[in-house]
């Protein structure tokens, strides 16, 4: 399976749920410093669930398509569910092999959404270390 599968390229060329987020409950920007990928997630949150998402960003195809694909899945999810979501869930959604050089591109969407929710709940942003859950074996 190719990293630049048709699905990824399709979302990269034609991103879904893009918007400036006016009226959102919370907005949060995160970046992937090694690449300069940037995402801002605008979330509408009601009774602990996501009712709507818009996002903006610039960067590589993996980070931008990743956010687009992830965004389509968010509506109706609870914030608790998202805060504990594992990176594997994002990898499955993307459906392409994510190697050691690109995992931050792929996980920037999860990192941004988690930190948007944390901001909404008055929590400190989590570090990359926590998002990527580096296995210490």
């Amino acid at each position: 399976m190719d990293l630049y599968a048709e699905n990824i390229l399709d979302h990269y060329r034609d991103p879904r749920c893009k918007g400036e987020g006016s009226g959102a409950s919370v907005s949060k920007e995160e970046d992937n410093p090694s690449c300069g990928d940037r995402l801002t997630a605008h979330l509408w949150i009601e009774d602990g669930s996501i009712t709507k998402i818009e996002w903006e960003g610039t960067g590589c195809a993996i980070s931008q398509a990743g956010m687009s694909i992830f965004a389509e899945e968010l509506e109706g999810k609870t914030t608790t569910e998202l805060l504990s979501m594992k990176k594997e869930t994002v990898y499955e959604l993307l459906g392409v092999p994510i190697g050691p050089r690109r995992f931050k591109c792929a996980l920037l969407c999860l990192h941004t959404v988690k930190n948007a929710i944390r901001k909404h709940e008055g929590l400190e942003p989590q570090m990359w270390l926590e998002t990527v859950e580096i296995d210490e074996d």
Binding site: G59, C60, I62
Partner: peptide, 9 residues
């Protein structure tokens, strides 16, 4: 074109 996509391919 983002440089990371380009150099990866």
């Amino acid at each position: 074109i983002h440089p990371h996509d380009l150099t990866e391919i």
